[in-house]
Design a protein around this nucleic acid. Structure first.
Length: 604
RNA sequence: UGGGGCGUGGCCAAGCGGUAAGGCACGAGACUUUGGCUCUCGCAUUCGGAGGUUCGAAUCCUCCCGCCCCAGCCA
């Protein structure tokens, strides 16, 4: 269509500065196949901030036909645990399922970095060529032999030395930003002496903290990470993967860059707080004069989400102090919490895509996340009727004992999904919120004299509202129905301004609903007055329990995890963890947008 | 006061010297058997500030201001 007046712009892939770099590296042949990695430390559960990093790394692998290795960054035996490894792998699989399964880089169970002459290498096993072998995540601890060999090599070339200073001395001698550091008294040791000492460190001759292996770089560097950083420390501790094989463990800077190298990572993406480590990352790689192509590190801004905290330390505190029920509490920003609450993986990916990737500090509004969740759920959730705060309505002219069944669509967005049958009778439950004895302006719902539609059934007109004499609370609504309006409009052309959801009283099932609000009242829970604790910003109303909710019969067949929309109320999931036979529990994933609530708010 | 990073609408975010994309939020309207969904329209004469270069600057230069990160044998 060259003569078309409008030139259709080709669908452009999302662009960010990192993808620009990758694209450029590919174009000029600097790399032939992209390898990224997602390297959580197994000392906590994944959260939405990890999801951003995961989507970036897997998204790039996917977009450029590469692979993204899942790697446990487990170099600190004191803090890590297998319990966390399992949950991380599970969450990663969940996030990637149906999207980037083929890009998930795992290794054959038991494999460690392979020595190849002086080089060490370990590549992902493509799922297709696993040949029935079990696969597992990469682990920095599987490179301990390689890392140790690299340490030895640094000593041999005079680029590392064993230091006997205590932790306090090292701290003091490092100097403050602005003033240079002081060289270790042991900096001048011969390679032979260093080798001997390092071997004895490894052999367990010295207690924890007695000596360290340090890089010999520059104590006068304005970048404190170049002031002879510690590479290895002594820790007589059992590691969840390597057991008691080691009593010296590498530190992040040594382990991370070399793990990247071992796995053949091309683009190593991490968050901004590590930019000052990049010179060290590059220094270590270059100091080793390695035979293969070196990885390159790039940094992006971590995600901050309004009304929640993201640091593992703080999330752990919420769990330990019982402020939430656990890591999978539906109010938690953890992947497990969000999964339990019914957030679809696709929505999380969409969210990650929409927030973008940049180097600017950011704090994303909850509204965007919720928008992504609603957009996905609107297409996939089964429609059901549920009355959360029931009030009885008696249809005076509907025969006692009569029951009709109406067939309602499971999802009006997608007629292929199917239908279900809903019983209708003389006494129904409707939402307390949908009735007012004295209607405020713009209130279209039920009040004396007003006619409304009952979804998928008849029109009813309110004849009276009975209230409790003392509290004034509505106890019962009386109404009449018009048989002519069965599943249709009124033949005489009357209009109705509202449609209400309802549940037949004699057919309803009882359930508990849990309604959630943000965990923290403040947008930035860390922004508390001097010295105060972030927990003081906790939202006392973050969880609301509703017992005695009335649900339509079809919900007895609800499957935990299946997305539901309680019409006019919100999206819900049945909770697999706490539902009991005959006593189901439903969690509110997210509310529906509510135009009336906005009108009400503005008016009052 | 050392080094590094960053400042584009309420929140994200494009923009890479040619005259401010897009999304969310918000507002107005249409449609509607969910006050949902969908659709339409509106929403930065201006890019932290001040100078300068240029025919032309958010983009280049200079100075200034503000915010964030770094002194773990954590990651």
């Amino acid at each position: 269509m060259p003569d078309s007046p409008i030139t259709e712009r080709p669908e452009t892939e999302r662009e960010d500065f990192i993808r620009e770099i990758v694209k450029d590296d590919l174009a000029r042949g600097a790399v032939s196949a992209v390898v990224t990695r997602f390297p959580p430390e197994p000392n906590g559960y994944l959260h939405i901030g990890h999801a951003k990093a995961l989507c970036l790394n897997f998204g790039i692998a996917r977009q450029f036909g590469g692979i993204c290795n899942l790697r446990m960054d487990d170099t600190n035996p004191a803090k890590e645990d297998v319990e966390y490894e399992d949950s991380i792998l599970d969450d990663v699989r969940w996030l990637v399922a149906g999207w980037a399964d083929d890009c998930l880089g795992l290794k054959a169970r038991g494999d460690v970095a392979r020595a190849d002459g002086r080089d060490f290498h370990l590549a992902a096993v493509p799922p297709a060529s696993a040949h029935g072998r079990a696969l597992e995540p990469f682990r920095a601890s599987d490179y301990f032999d390689a890392l140790h060999a690299f340490g030895v090599r640094l000593i041999e070339s005079g680029k590392a030395f064993v230091c006997d200073h205590t932790a306090e001395e090292v701290d003091r001698m490092r100097g403050a930003p602005g003033e240079g550091g002081q060289e270790s008294h042991y900096r001048g040791r011969s390679a032979a002496e260093n080798l001997d000492l390092f071997a004895r460190m490894r052999a367990g001759e010295f207690p924890d903290g007695a000596r360290t292996l340090r890089a010999r770089i520059d104590m006068a560097s304005p970048n404190v990470w170049l002031r002879d950083p510690v590479l290895y420390r002594i820790r007589h501790a059992s590691h969840h993967n390597t057991g008691d094989r080691w009593c010296i463990y590498p530190l992040y800077d040594l382990a991370h860059g070399l793990s990247d190298y071992i796995e053949g990572v091309t683009h190593s993406l991490c968050t901004l707080e590590f930019v000052s480590h990049r010179p060290l990352y590059d220094w270590l790689l270059e100091a080793l004069a390695l035979p293969r192509a070196l990885p390159h590190k790039y940094e992006f801004a971590r995600l901050n989400l309004a009304h929640t905290v993201m640091s593992k330390r703080k999330l752990l505190r919420l769990v330990q102090e019982g402020r939430v029920s656990g890591w999978d509490d539906p109010r938690m920003p953890t992947i497990r919490g969000m999964r339990r609450r019914g957030y679809p993986a696709a929505a999380l990916r969409d969210f990650a895509d929409r927030i973008g990737v940049a180097r600017r500090e950011n704090r994303v509004e909850l509204a965007l996340l919720e928008h992504c969740v609603r957009e996905d759920l609107n297409r996939h959730a089964l429609r059901r009727m549920a009355v959360l705060d029931p009030v009885r309505v008696v249809i005076e002219n509907y025969p006692e004992g009569k029951v009709e069944e109406f067939e309602l669509a499971d999802n009006p967005e997608d007629s292929a999904v199917g239908t279900r049958r809903v019983a209708f009778s003389r006494e129904l439950w409707i939402e307390r919120d949908d009735v007012r004895e004295v209607p405020p302006p713009k209130f279209f719902r039920l009040s004396p004299g007003v006619e409304v539609r009952l979804r998928g059934a008849y029109w009813i007109r309110c004849t009276a509202v009975r209230t409790d004499a003392t509290t004034g609370e509505i106890t019962e609504v009386r109404a009449t129905y018009d048989p002519e309006t069965k599943r249709s409009n009124a033949p005489d052309g009357r209009k109705v301004k509202a449609t209400l959801h309802w549940v037949s009283a004699s057919h309803a099932i009882d359930a508990e609903a849990r309604l959630y609000e943000p965990l923290f009242t403040a947008e930035d829970p860390d922004d508390v007055p001097d010295g105060a604790d972030f927990t003081q910003g906790l939202n006392p109303r973050s969880l609301e329990l509703r017992q005695g909710c009335k649900l339509e019969r079809a919900l007895v067949d609800a499957v935990p995890g299946q997305p539901l929309q309680f019409e006019r109320v919100g999206y819900f999931v049945q909770d697999g963890a706490e539902s009991r036979p005959g006593a189901p529990v439903f969690l509110r994933t997210v509310t529906l947008k509510d135009a009336w609530a906005r009108v009400e708010k503005r008016g009052g």
